[in-house]
């Protein structure tokens, strides 16, 4: 073991390079980004699992002193069904944009419908209650097995199943049909001594990091956008922002500050 002293790192107890800032409270996390004239955002979310948005009236919210802007999907560029490869995943940009702010329909309870920017988070929250949304509540699909039923209500009315490169001929709630096959499974099962067939259900889970999601944006009149955002994938966030906002990617800069955990759950925004 005497040679171990010859190594610079192995056998030593190095101190994290970001440790000092973190034990003194000096490290800057996303929510610690401060700037002059900062506005605070709050998001109005759907109380329904599935509903058509008939009308959104933001006028009462905009009239509240301290409210500077209210946005809905109308303010986002309209995107085609463009499939973009954004590093971690291949996504349909229109779906992604509609997830940021719902267009036409809300697809789950909690789906973002409108966003408010105000001079304090409390005023922004008060303004949410002043946004009038008229919903036509639709039958929800609450379970994957129900969703696969042919008579199930359609969540995305134009979605067709894609299966080994082929598109289905009519709309379905099944987005993709994956098949992983090697050899002759039928024969294998027939020859097997024991075949175990079971169905497993699990709850929806999400990573349990401590830091809430957050982003701070600075938009300049010259068309440049800088975003400080707690993310594990700053470049993916930049690509997505550029696509969703239809801005040249060179005008978007994403700065990842210290990240309060993620474990994969903050890979994008």
């Amino acid at each position: 073991m005497s040679e171990s002293t010859a190594y610079k790192v192995i056998g030593t107890r190095p101190i994290r390079h970001d440790g000092l800032d973190k034990v003194t409270g000096r490290a800057i996390y996303g929510a610690d980004v401060q700037m002059v004239g900062l506005l605070y955002g709050k998001i109005l979310r759907s109380p329904h699992a599935h509903a058509r948005i008939r009308k959104i009236d933001t006028s009462r919210a905009l009239a509240l002193p301290g409210v500077k802007a209210v946005t809905t999907h109308q303010d986002l560029p309209s995107l085609d069904d463009k499939i973009a490869d954004l590093g971690e995943a291949v996504v349909n940009m229109r779906y992604m944009s509609n997830n940021i702010l719902a267009e036409g329909k809300v697809l789950y309870k909690g789906h973002a419908v409108a966003a408010v920017a105000a001079t304090s988070p409390h005023i922004a929250e008060e303004a949410l209650a002043l946004i009038d949304v008229e919903y036509e509540v639709l039958p929800p699909v609450m379970d994957v097995l129900d969703a696969m039923n042919e008579r199930a209500p359609l969540v995305l009315e134009d979605l067709k199943t894609s299966s080994i490169g082929q598109k289905g001929d009519r709309p379905s709630n099944v987005a993709s049909h994956f098949q992983h096959k090697l050899g002759d499974p039928e024969k294998g099962f027939a020859e097997a001594d024991v075949v175990i067939d079971r169905e497993f259900h699990t709850a929806t889970v999400h990573q349990g990091y401590i830091e809430p999601h957050n982003a701070t944006a600075l938009y300049s009149p010259d068309g440049h956008l800088t975003v400080w955002c707690s993310t594990q994938g700053a470049f993916a966030v930049r690509s997505q922002l550029a696509e969703i906002l239809q801005m040249p990617i060179a005008t978007v800069k994403v700065v990842p500050p210290a990240l309060g955990g993620g474990f994969g759950g903050t890979m994008t925004y």
């Binding site: 994290r16 440790g19 973190k22 034990v23 990091y209 401590i210 990240l259 955990g261």
Partner: peptide, 18 residues
Amino acid sequence: LQQQFLEHAALQCGICTP
């Protein structure tokens, strides 16, 4: 405490550390 948190690697992301 700050010194020992560093020396014992008692933090990673650091958001709970303060």
